[in-house]
Nucleic acid binder design. Structure first.
Lengths: 195, 195
DNA sequence: AAGCGTCCTGTACGACTGCCCTAACCGTAG
DNA sequence: CTACGGTTAGGGCAGTCGTACAGGACGCTT
């Protein structure tokens, strides 16, 4: 079916993607070069251009892989929640494990910025995020939250923002964030004020 | 007091900072080079190293200048709010003017990431953000919002997150965000659920 | 006119960049 | 044995990188 050389090749390809996922947060998206990428993966620079058409192709694929993985894990966690409050707690609990200088977090933000300079990447990331927001909204709706789509959008945005602030080492305590966010999913009564 | 040459020099220095503020979002923090910086400012590359010790010094100073300006403007807007709900509306109204691909927004995010690789920059940005959060919390407290510090932290984080998502072109509609966030500052009653 | 402070130019250096091309490798098939 | 597909090594090209350093240009003071 496939030669042992081909199998080794695929493994090298994976190592290159893993190296890219490490280097993007370490050095910044635009500072990942063919040479450092190859060195980290333990191959010579020319191998990079054998497996990929360009360096940015490696970066794009690596970033999308990581983001897909993160969102999938988050989805799995959310499946266990029995109420809207638990959804928030679950999201923030999984966020708790993420340190402010977490490479994954930095990689996601780097990807956001790279997307602002790469139409193709922007479209792919946009799809990923929109789909996740849809799944989150569906869950919130099932738990009786008002305006689930908008609430999910705010929730997702807040999550990213909290991550961003934690990256600065000045992020808020997540248990405090949780209690504040619970106000978002509390059953709605009569509005006390008018817009 | 100061020679005309010195005045010209200060003007060139400002042009370099302005050029940096343009180029950081355009090309990415690590991709701003001495040459493009000089070209954008209309000077020769060596002038950069006359006014600044290094390129990254230009970038740091330019980024902090912009962030200070943005937060000052936001503070001014917030001064006009007469209630917590108006604070939120004011914040989001000023956010409305910011497009998803707004250079200022991208500059801020780029700075966040650069801060993760530069201790000095991280400390300076952290101070800026913490101070703003403090002012926001004071305002919310004056308007009777519960847990003003935590709420301010969430609010500030949400704001950044919304910006981030808008950069992807998939950001939520801000009027929807506003109505959701109003739940945060609604007078608190008995909690309907226990954690 | 000479000296001075300030700002700017031109040039140079070694290191690094993305990408390409040719040659060699290695296991398998004939 | 030869031939072959798939992978890798090494070298090279044309360009950019950050920074340094010597000298020129300007205006103000003496």
């Amino acid at each position: 079916m496939s030669s042992p050389a081909a199998a080794r090749g695929r493994e090298v390809r994976q190592r290159l993607l893993a190296a890219a996922a490490e280097l993007i947060p370490e050095r910044g998206w635009t500072a990942v070069s063919t040479r450092v990428l190859a060195e980290r993966a333990g191959v010579t620079p020319s191998v990079v251009h054998y497996h990929f058409p360009s360096v940015s192709a490696v970066l794009n694929e690596a970033a999308l892989d990581v983001m897909r993985r993160v969102l999938d894990e988050l989805d799995a966690v959310l499946d266990g929640a029995a109420s809207a409050a638990e959804v928030i707690d679950a999201v923030l609990a999984s966020a708790q494990e993420v340190a402010g200088s977490d490479p994954t977090l930095l990689l996601v933000v780097e990807s956001y910025l790279a997307a602002s300079r790469d139409d193709g990447l922007r479209e792919q990331i946009g799809t990923l995020v929109t789909e996740f927001r849809g799944r989150l909204a569906r869950r919130l709706g099932e738990h009786g939250v008002a305006a689930p789509a908008d609430t999910a959008a705010v929730l997702a945005a807040t999550l990213d923002g909290v991550f961003l602030h934690r990256g600065l080492g000045s992020g808020p305590d997540l248990t405090a964030v949780a209690s504040v966010l619970h106000r978002l999913v509390r059953p709605q009564h009569v509005r006390e004020h008018t817009a």
